[in-house]
Design a protein around this nucleic acid. Sequence first.
DNA 1: TAAACTTATCGCCATAAGACGATGGATCGA
DNA 2: TCGATCCATCGTCTTATGGCGATAAGTTTA
Lengths: 114, 114
Amino acid sequence: MTQKSVSDLRVKILSALSDPIRLKLLEFLSGGERCVCEILPAFQRSQSTISKHLNILYEADILERKVDGKRTVYCIKDPQVFEIIRMVDSLALTQISQLAEAGKLLEKSLNNRS
Amino acid sequence: MTQKSVSDLRVKILSALSDPIRLKLLEFLSGGERCVCEILPAFQRSQSTISKHLNILYEADILERKVDGKRTVYCIKDPQVFEIIRMVDSLALTQISQLAEAGKLLEKSLNNRS
DNA sequence: TAAACTTATCGCCATAAGACGATGGATCGA
DNA sequence: TCGATCCATCGTCTTATGGCGATAAGTTTA
C-alpha cells in the first residue's frame, strides 16, 4: 500500500485548500451534504471542472462521497477543515489590520513633514 | 492601492503554504531569524530556487525580510502560521488513524469469513 | 428497451509554477 | 580599488494545474 507520511498529507491538504473554487465548495457544503447537480448551479464552471475540483477535495480526504442512485452526494468528512480555514482567515485579518496601521503611520508622517 | 480581500489573502496564504520546501523553510525559521546563506546549506536546491521560495513566503506576508549589510535576514512575521500548520497536521493525523482503523476492520472481517 | 439524466473521465489547450544557471547590483575585506 | 561574497532577478525549460467539450457508464423514467 502507498505509505503516507504526515508531511505528504499536509501538502496534499494545503494544496487542495489553495483554490478559491474549492474553498467555495467547502463553504457550500458546510450546510450539509449535497449532490453534484445541486452544487453545479451555484458555480459558473463546467460540470467537468466542478467534478474535478470535488475529486481533488475527495482525494485529499476532505470530502466524503457516496453514490445514491444516479446521483453522487458529497459532504464534509471532518469539520476540522473549517478550523484550518478560520485560522487562515485570522492570519489574513491580522495582516490587513497591520497594513491599515502602517497606512495611518505613513499618513501621519506625511502630514508632519510640512 | 491594491485592494485586498480576506478571501484573496486566504488563497495566497494557503498557496504559499502548499509546498514542501516552503514548509521546511518555515520550520527552519521557527528557530529564529536566519540569513539566506545560513538557509542554503540546509536545502539541496539552487540559490535562485530558495530565493524564489523565500520571496513567495514574503509576498504572502508570512516572512519578514531585512537587509543587513550584504546579507538578507528572514524571519517569521507572525507565529500564527504555526497554528495553521498544527491544525493541518492534526487533520492529517486524524486521516491516518482513520485509515488504520479501516485497515484493522478489514483484516478482522477477512479473518472471520473463514 | 429507449430516452433522459447524472456524473466521472479523457483529451486538449493555455497558463502557472518549479527548477536551474547566468547575470548584475550591492557590500565587505584586502 | 579589486576581488570575493551575498542574494534578487531574468531567461529558459519542464511539469503541473485549471478550464472546456466530448464521451462513456450507470440509473431512472417512460
